[in-house]
Design a protein around this nucleic acid. Structure first.
Lengths: 202, 202
DNA sequence: CACATTAGTGGCAGAGACTGCCAGCTGACA
DNA sequence: TGTCAGCTGGCAGTCTCTGCCACTAATGTG
């Protein structure tokens, strides 16, 4: 990895860390991009070369999740039943979440607190999750050679599995770390598996 | 209904109709709120007293849908199994969609074309749908007297039924009117019902 | 019918988000 | 070392959205 790329990575992290600190300190809405850029020692103009907007600072994390999920799905054999592939992909994601570093955990908790405090952000995140579902449907339909607009089965498969992810993500109490989230997702996924009639996804 | 309310209704419709005409004519992004307000003969300031933003013009339609859905659910007996209540509520919505006027159909098609042409709008709509799901979960959990954060079953029930709504809404070909959408939703709902093991939602 | 009350509107000023453009700097690579 | 591509900063400008105040019109009351 060249010096240029390392610098970019550093700037991105500086922007995110500065932003989250400001968000939690003085609120998301009352934090301006000028403040974030100033705290990260870059120009406001540069901010928009890294992120499309303020909410992208948060959405970025889900984009990483999506990448992991799509890669895990791509590694499954194409002739495997789609529901099995999806459950395996989700469990692969859960495994990577489990071995996250303490720093990752800290960031995760910050993002969670932000989402809980700002419905608008949670909303944007879920919208992004829907986009992820669309891509997963595309992938599954492609490897089966079917038109996703014509047969609802790929949609159903993805929706059922992602339901576990979405439902498991909602937290009862305030402080809910990644391990607890993973536990809830796994629990919900098993509930989904038990709820479905064997061989439903022919 | 007093004169005041009738006027408001008229202004809202003027704004929406003017906006959709402009959107389809010159694109969503290149249409400014000033243009919309001018076309509807109100001040830009007034626009924001009717809609929170440009996207709200489109989201407004789903808000009506949500209202219908929540009312239909509220009318189901509280001791009915939740999944049955949800399917009934969705079918009640489908029935109201079926007897829509030709004008409603025209607006529906305009909205559809907008959503297809602007991923951002589709995304925002789905985010709003997620919010609807949250409220449905709340309603179902409330009438059972359980904490939705603690038990995933209400979430699951709502997700499964709303999956039919979301999946049925996606269209294969371009011109897809309300009747066709209703047909697809009903079809998908039946698929969901067949996929679930009897008595799964004890 | 006259009046006070209230809701709705228009216009203004201003903050904040975002983009296009150009000039200057700095790794990358031969 | 020199050229080149890529990143950055700053400026100007548009658009979205909000608070505020004065003005008009609908409503309800004596």
């Amino acid at each position: 990895m060249g010096l240029r790329e390392r610098k970019k990575e550093k700037t991105r992290l500086a922007l995110q860390d500065a932003a989250f600190e400001l968000f939690l300190e003085q609120g998301y809405d009352s934090t301006t991009i000028d403040q974030i850029a100033a705290a990260a020692d870059v120009s406001p103009r540069t901010f928009f070369r890294y992120f499309t907007g303020k909410d992208h600072l948060v959405l970025w994390f889900h984009e990483q999740t999506e990448r992991t999920l799509l890669e895990a799905l791509a590694e499954r054999p194409a002739d495997e039943p789609p529901f099995a592939s999806m459950t395996h992909a989700l469990r692969a994601l859960l495994r990577t979440m489990e071995l996250s570093t303490p720093e990752d955990n800290a960031r995760f908790l910050k993002v969670r607190r932000l989402l809980d405090a700002n419905p608008h952000l949670a909303s944007a995140t879920f919208a992004r999750v829907i986009e992820t579902e669309r891509r997963l449907v595309e992938a599954i339909a492609a490897r089966r050679g079917v038109d996703p607009g014509r047969t609802p089965l790929p949609h159903l498969v993805v929706t059922f599995v992602m339901a576990a992810m979405r439902i498991g993500f909602t937290c009862p109490a305030d402080p809910c770390g990644p391990r607890e989230i993973v536990r809830r997702m796994e629990e919900t996924l098993q509930l989904v598996e038990r709820s479905l009639r064997p061989g439903w996804d022919v």
